[in-house]
Nucleic acid binder design. Structure first.
Lengths: 106, 106
DNA sequence: TTCTTATTTGGCAATTTAACCAATAAGAAA
DNA sequence: TTTCTTATTGGTTAAATTGCCAAATAAGAA
């Protein structure tokens, strides 16, 4: 591909890609409310611990989450509340899509 | 996987996933400035026309872009300016990451 | 009509992703 | 120490993604 090697675009797309998975987005929304450890998240998600851990490492690599260790447990938290703003910003689009869909049915 | 079948999360993650690719993010930023046709975008990206067209169809499926046909050309535009807000919202995170990286080097 | 241009679609190969299980590491408790 | 718990890493497999080429489609122009 004729690469787009703009570092800002690369950086942004890495972050957005990390957010672009239902499980990871769910994790983000959970820890935005309250930091949580892997075992808590695993319960809420219903996937294998290793699966959850790997999703968390992707979020960590993207800089979206921070960790704090407490004994054997690792608590994950949101690194920047701006991530919530990013998600919230998309609601008008979702609303628009819903409207277009219901209009289409008429 | 123990599915997270929250439709809101599914919807949001589809949108974020579509944004999570450098080429598609580049396209979004380009057409946010000014609507553009496939051939214009292809030139700026430097990929095959079919590649660009497929990226555009992913963006279209996510509801991120609209089209307007003009003769044989198809002009793509941003469906909602909130997408720009979504991207902008992430700048504090990028700044934070930069700061952490430079702190780490000391 | 035929030719040309713009775009989309089909098909394929290479790469990446995502899920699980198993094994390992790091602490805490017995 | 050993044992138990929590989390991460390695390995494997199936599915999805991405890119290009080639073929098909669509809309004008000649």
């Amino acid at each position: 591909m004729g690469t787009i090697d703009n570092p800002r675009v690369q950086e942004l797309s890495q972050i957005l890609k990390a957010l672009g998975h239902p499980t990871r987005l769910f994790i983000i929304e959970e820890i935005a409310k309250q930091p949580a450890c892997v075992c808590e998240l695993k319960e809420r998600i219903g996937a294998d611990t290793s699966t959850v851990s790997k999703h968390l490492s992707i979020l960590r690599n993207a800089g979206l989450v921070d960790i704090q260790k407490a004994g054997t447990m690792v608590y994950y938290s949101l690194s920047c509340s701006c991530v919530e703003d990013c998600i919230q910003a998309l609601y008008p689009l979702i609303k628009l899509k819903q409207k277009r869909y219901s209009d289409m049915l008429q």
